[in-house]
């Protein structure tokens, strides 16, 4: 536990320092304002992170037995755990594709409404509805939609005379991940649409008006004017969506539980499985997975922010 106490000591000194600058508020005031947030945050967000890191170098067994195992969790993970890498691959695929679909699908929807589609005001509200639903609700509905016998997906195919394409959507490794992804995108498209819509309405009207006068087609307008002007929003949404999807758990857990043949196993479901489904009761190894994954996420975020936004930083 020495790691965490040392950390807290460091932390305490720092939060005590600001008193030197008394120009605006005394230490007491600052502490009074910040302390509640910091206490909750430190006790139940930062401390757990540290404890997880600590766990990842140990085997955490039942009845409080803690064994130091060095980096062996990590070496196993990196070199001997095929399921983990399968999960990483799936998560990466899911994240990249879902992010792109989400963001550009959302842009497309926003443009539809921005182009003064009929009932745009009402549709904006309707299209947003799935965003408000819990993953449990969305998951169950989509499991039904994908049901082989009476699900909507196959029913529509049969109705269209495309019965040959009917599938056990969640039951085959080649379709399962995409099917879950479809449900995920369905839930979140409305979110991106709203954000884009807000950004579109904030665009200076003259520019679009000028383009209209030039008899500029929608496609040209989109490519040459709208997308460049929405760059900041696009980048922002890409990052947000990316982070969210790298942590995807609920929907997959509810819809497939990681199967079939590990084809929808993501890092999050694997962490959960190793912690609570496998017969080991060991919390060390799953902690190592979580830590390694967090490092990868951080690296990704760093790279993405570097690549996408030289000018605008993550916060404001």
């Amino acid at each position: 536990m020495s790691i965490s106490t040392r950390f807290w000591g460091f932390f305490g000194r720092n939060s005590a320092k600001p008193e030197t600058d008394a120009r605006c508020a005394g230490l007491g005031i600052l502490v009074a304002f910040l302390a509640p947030a910091l206490l909750f945050y430190a006790g139940f967000a930062i401390y757990p992170v540290i404890r997880t890191i600590y766990n990842s170098f140990h085997a955490i067994k039942p009845h409080g037995v803690v064994e130091f195992v060095g980096v062996s969790n990590f070496t196993t993970l990196l070199f001997a755990d095929a399921t983990f890498w399968k999960a990483v691959g799936n998560t990466a695929l899911f994240t990249i594709v879902a992010t792109i679909l989400d963001v550009f699908g959302g842009l497309l929807l926003a443009l539809c409404l921005f182009a003064r589609a009929p009932f745009a005001g009402l549709l904006r509200v309707v299209w947003f509805t799935p965003v408000l639903m819990s993953y449990v609700v969305v998951g169950v509905i989509w499991v039904w939609i994908y049901d082989y016998d009476w699900g909507l997906a196959n029913a529509i195919l049969r109705w269209l005379g495309l019965g040959a394409f009917e599938q056990s959507w969640l039951g085959h490794p080649s379709t399962a991940l995409w099917s879950v992804l479809g449900a995920h995108v369905w839930k979140w498209l409305g979110f991106n649409m709203i954000v884009f819509l807000a950004a579109l309405y904030a665009l200076p009207g003259e520019v679009l008006g000028a383009a209209e006068l030039d008899n500029c087609g929608w496609v040209a307008k989109l490519v040459y004017i709208i997308v460049p002007m929405l760059r900041a929003t696009i980048v922002n949404l890409l990052v947000l969506s990316f982070i969210g999807k790298m942590m995807v758990f609920d929907l997959i857990w509810i819809m497939t539980g990681g199967g079939p043949l590990w084809s929808t196993e993501t890092v999050s479901t694997y962490v959960y499985k190793r912690a609570f489904e496998w017969n080991t009761f060991d919390l060390g190894y799953p902690s190592a997975i979580a830590v390694l994954w967090f490092v990868i996420i951080l690296a990704f975020i760093a790279v993405m922010t570097q690549l996408l936004r030289q000018r605008d930083k993550l916060e404001f």
Partner: peptide
């Protein structure tokens, strides 16, 4: 096995057997 073997749940497989289909 049925086409939906991978997703058919335990209870559903019973119903499949004695009722529908």
């Amino acid at each position: 096995y049925p086409k939906n073997f991978m997703t058919l749940k335990l209870g559903e497989s019973h119903y499949y057997f004695y009722s529908k289909p």
